[in-house]
Simulated scan of single mutants.
Amino acid sequence: MTLDQRNSPKLLLGITGGLVAIIVLFLAYQWFFATSNEVLPEHEGTSLNTPAKPAASAEVKPTESVIATDEKTIQLVDEKILKAAVPENESLAKEEVAKLEDIQMQLKDQETMLKAQHADADDLVALKEEQIKLLEAQLAQKQ
């Protein structure tokens, strides 16, 4: 290689880009296999693996992890978790309470997000209805 070829910005950019691509692929590989090998607690694993079903159209058996308490509400947490004894060790009990509080916070966040989505959907429906009325009025004017 000549001196001009070794000092070329294109060569430096190519080498840098190749190294960055290799590092990104390595990190993506590590992240993918780290998240797929995680062992989820029993109550989290079942809720992630089972699809949510509307209570009105689906028949829910009491032996399943999702138990319908009312036709409009579906219980998201297994009854076994609520009735399980609190561990005798104080640190384990605090850890269990922290897990349950975290789950409760996630459920509240999910509820607020769903309410916001419903409000947005209602707004979109109202706007679409208004748009249809305006288009019908324009069509009536042309005729």
Score class of each variant (00 low, 15 high):
84 A>S: 09
113 M>N: 15
133 K>I: 01
121 A>K: 12
99 K>A: 03
82 L>A: 05
105 M>E: 14
97 V>F: 08
93 A>D: 04
132 I>H: 02
81 I>M: 04
106 Q>V: 10
70 D>W: 04
77 V>D: 00
99 K>H: 05
81 I>K: 00
102 D>Q: 13
70 D>R: 06
117 Q>T: 08
133 K>V: 02
106 Q>K: 15
128 K>W: 09
94 K>F: 11
112 T>E: 13
127 L>H: 06
90 E>H: 07
74 I>R: 01
94 K>C: 06
136 E>K: 07
96 E>Q: 14
71 E>V: 12
111 E>C: 12
87 P>A: 06
122 D>M: 05
99 K>I: 03
89 N>G: 02
68 A>M: 03
123 D>T: 09
110 Q>I: 10
86 V>I: 12
74 I>L: 11
127 L>K: 13
126 A>M: 03
88 E>V: 11
131 Q>C: 02
73 T>E: 04
74 I>D: 00
78 D>S: 13
68 A>L: 01
78 D>N: 11
78 D>G: 08
124 L>V: 03
91 S>V: 13
119 A>N: 09
123 D>N: 06
77 V>L: 08
96 E>I: 05
82 L>K: 09
78 D>T: 10
87 P>I: 03
125 V>W: 09
115 K>A: 15
119 A>D: 13
124 L>K: 06
115 K>S: 13
69 T>R: 01
79 E>M: 06
107 L>N: 11
100 L>M: 06
121 A>E: 09
112 T>N: 10
